[in-house]
Design a protein around this nucleic acid. Structure first.
Lengths: 342, 342
DNA sequence: TAAGGTATGTTAATCGGTTAACTTGAGTCT
DNA sequence: AGACTCAAGTTAACCGATTAACATACCTTA
């Protein structure tokens, strides 16, 4: 038999559908007598009734669903940054009585995506993460489009515009400064920066910090000591060979911008039979859970990815439930771990 | 202004709402003249119309949403098995025009969960993964409840009952047999088995295979050489100390059941200054993506987690879209990787 | 005793779509 | 000319809830 609905209960109880709805939802306690309320409850229970959330959402104009926009490369959740943020998001979402819907538009989440999502009305709000291959322009367009449409959203570590939006990130510039200071304190003068994509907000912020701190130390970050490998091991090796196969000017320390680069560094060091930190010191910006299994243990600045996810969901839900809430911009602190690589 | 709806288009075009619905959905090409169809399209475009998917789903009794049931421990997606399966699921789901909803009931996905989900009607089908802390009874109850309610679902590597259900897994018994043969071929006679939870289907299947293959080789798997550490490093160390701190009967090889155990082994070997494979050989059942970063590279049987996710979603969608589809039971092959640990 | 308040419901509109069944007029066939 | 077919829409029921507005009886209170 089909699932019972409000009208089934109403018929059995000899009351109107409205009465059943009111009774079961605990609204307006004065509208249904305690006796009838109890009767209705009992019948609902006997029938194993549970509401059709779809109909409910349509009537209430609210789904209690959050959408996570993550640009699709097939094995997307292999990315520890995303996996951990997702865990944090899911934790908050559960705690606040919401659920999470995964949207992964193929291609860039620019105009098409915005439209696709604006349209659906399936989610009460959106979280953007790792909009890695988006141009600044795409992101700005998206931000403005969503704002104009009154859609609530939060960006995680992926926006460098100036609009007042919900934002959760880590202070990458400060992190890079701390990294340089650490390396300089340990005697390094030739420092290279290995990154994934030059368009990433993280890349840009790190670079700002690096330049500032190196200038302070009277050093210079040479253009040829900045490498981007586009998440590709082969490209990483090419860059590293350029740095290490010539005798002079060889960097003594490398600062890596994300987890995948750290792994590439380890692979490279293996392949070329270099020693860490003898031949090259490695200082990483990394996710703790991911770096935990690596040997040797990397010296690293860990970013609180899980917490970023949690906060992102929390401030998004705040802004959904409290209409007058101002957008929040949150930068989380990073932590230092002393490994054996620098 | 509020989002445009069908009725707005209908008014502007001077036709009925039904006509607009038909025209925009390309149904029944003979019902609306090409001219009117074009007019309606144009107006929809001008207004930036996009359908309210909620209303659509309610009317069509279909959401094109799949639910993923994953038991919630807070940092759930740190688990590479889940993260990879999720990636596979998401890939298939996208390809087939669906979206994914994450359900993570706190507590065991037994009766309460089943009810919670049956009720919602938000998803067209469910995927169960890693129902690690469920009793056999809970799982059987769930399976029967879902079947009775006509809910479509697939289980990934987490069912040992005999009901005909959609199931995707790996042939763990065969994997364990292959592991034993490899170790025996390399001269090992005292083999220990390190696992996480004795109630896991994987644990049970591996154990079957181990016993069978060792019997074939004229060996015995001693009860004290089977250890379960409940995902806890301290417990793992306790077990390993029992195995290694006494002189005789010390195992020469350890077969590990999942990724976390492999990491614990590495940590242990570090802590006790043992050498691999000199003091102890390690042969792992692992997820390739996760084990990829480990040094030394583990000798391992890799399970195709991503593909399992893909297939799970595919057969689920098949069974949703083809009502007469029989449940499919799929066991995927594993692959061997020759590392340096065994 | 008339007015007003309170408890307990019901009616009907609404959310934004889909779709079976009906209508109407024009063309076709015999 | 009458019966039949087909194109092109329209009407209205329906999906399964929520909720504002209205109705009724009973109880106070001045």
């Amino acid at each position: 038999m089909p699932a019972p609905k409000l009208s089934d209960i109403a018929r059995r109880a000899g009351v109107s559908v409205a009465a059943v709805s009111i009774a079961l939802n605990n609204k307006d306690t004065t509208r249904v007598s305690p006796a009838k309320r109890e009767l209705i409850r009992q019948i609902a229970q006997d029938l194993g009734y549970s509401p059709n959330e779809l109909a409910k959402a349509l009537a209430e104009r609210r789904t209690r669903l959050l959408g996570l926009m993550v640009p699709m490369k097939d094995p997307i959740f292999f990315n520890q940054f995303i996996a951990q943020a997702l865990s944090g998001i899911q934790a908050s979402v559960m705690r606040r009585g919401y659920n999470l819907l995964i949207y992964s538009p193929s291609g860039r989440p620019g105009r098409a995506t915005r439209d696709q999502i604006l349209e659906s009305k399936f989610t009460d709000g959106l979280i953007f993460i790792n909009t890695r291959s988006c141009t600044t322009r795409d992101i700005n367009d998206t931000v403005h489009g969503l704002d104009a449409a009154g859609i609530r959203f939060t960006m995680i570590n992926s926006y460098y515009g100036r609009a007042a939006i919900n934002y959760v990130g880590v202070d990458d510039a400060a992190l890079a400064e701390a990294a340089v200071r650490y390396l300089v304190d340990h005697g390094h003068r030739r420092i290279a920066f290995l990154s994934s994509l030059p368009t990433l907000p993280t890349h840009i912020h790190l670079l700002q910090g690096l330049r500032r701190a190196m200038a302070e130390a009277g050093l210079e970050l040479k253009a040829e000591h900045i490498g981007c490998c586009n998440y590709d091991q082969t490209q990483a090796f090419t860059i590293l060979d350029q740095w290490f196969l010539r005798r002079k000017d060889r960097p003594t320390a490398i600062f890596t911008a994300d987890d995948s680069l750290l792994v590439h560094m380890y692979d490279y060091v293996d392949a070329r039979h270099l020693s860490i930190p003898g031949d090259v010191a490695i200082l990483a910006r990394a996710n703790s859970a991911n770096a935990g299994g690596l040997r040797p243990r990397p010296t690293a600045f860990f970013i609180p990815t899980f917490e970023m996810g949690q906060l992102a969901a929390d401030i998004l839900i705040d802004s959904i439930e409290l209409p007058e809430q101002k957008p929040q911009r949150i930068l989380l602190p990073f932590t230092f771990f002393q490994g054996t690589t620098a």
